[in-house]
């Protein structure tokens, strides 16, 4: 499992691995928002937490089809499936690798982009906290979507169609934490619910992902 994680991380950071693409995408989305809604500082401050969450979510989505498709195409996934690794662990490691190479950088860069959107002072902490807690769920759910669509030729769009509705609760609670944090309101309840969704997704979804992988490798 460690070997698989190290290999996935190495593949992500080497040439052609696509590391950083999600970050650039995040930056571009955040840059485009003021063009669309106007440069008013008050207006931007009001929507900043939501935009940061939505941007991070879309950036995450963008890189989902790489989680499993590359290994499927070159036959590595079949060989990994016959190796002495439980597929549940493979799915969990893949989600972890995706989070480390996509989710975590997004969390770290979010406060910098918050400046562009005039995020209110207390918001910085809570945007980072909510993204740090919420993005693992996005990776776990995304890995499940990738496992469902791995055998398909044009799975990319379908993957988004399947994954986005599943992202709804995470987005609602995550953005709510960030919004309330920015306004200085109490945010314990959505924070707990967000953490609950992440823990449950990370713990349970690898089983569903493994089931889908088994079907797709048949």
């Amino acid at each position: 499992m460690i070997a698989l994680l190290r290999r996935d991380l190495a593949l992500a950071v080497r040439a052609g691995g696509g590391f950083g693409l999600a970050l650039v995408f995040f930056l571009i989305v955040v840059t485009l928002v003021p063009f669309a809604v106007g440069p008013g500082q008050v207006q931007l401050a009001a929507i900043a937490p939501g935009i940061l969450w939505l941007g991070a979510l879309l950036a995450c989505l963008l890189s989902l089809d790489r989680i499993l498709a590359l290994d499927y195409e070159d036959g590595a996934l079949e060989l990994i499936a016959t190796a002495p690794l439980p597929l549940e662990a493979v799915a969990a490691v893949k989600a972890l690798a995706h989070w480390l190479t996509t989710g975590l950088p997004l969390v770290l860069v979010a406060p910098v982009l918050g400046i562009l959107l005039n995020l209110p002072g207390p918001g910085y902490l809570w945007v980072v906290v909510s993204l740090a807690i919420g993005t693992p769920a996005l990776s776990a759910i995304g890995t499940f979507g990738a496992a469902l669509t791995v055998g398909l030729k044009r799975g990319g769009l379908l993957l988004s169609l399947i994954v986005l509705p599943l992202y709804v609760p995470t987005l609602i609670f995550g953005a709510e934490v960030a919004r309330r944090g920015a306004l200085g309101q109490p945010l314990e309840t959505p924070l707990m619910l967000l953490a609950g969704i992440t823990l449950a997704s990370v713990a349970l979804l690898p089983f569903a992902s493994a089931a889908a992988l088994r079907v797709n490798l048949r």
């Binding site: 460690i2 070997a3 698989l4 290999r7 190495a10 593949l11 080497r14 040439a15 052609g16 691995g17 290994d71 070159d74 036959g75 590595a76 996934l77 079949e78 060989l79 990994i80 016959t82 190796a83 002495p84 690794l85």
Partner: peptide, 26 residues
């Protein structure tokens, strides 16, 4: 052990890295 038509080789990794990955997985 199963060896299919496809070799499951990762182009960005070196020959030794590819082999060591499989050795460690097993």
């Amino acid at each position: 052990a199963y060896a299919s038509h496809a070799d499951g080789i990762k182009g960005q990794l070196s020959v030794v890295e590819n082999l060591n990955f499989w050795a460690r997985v097993y």
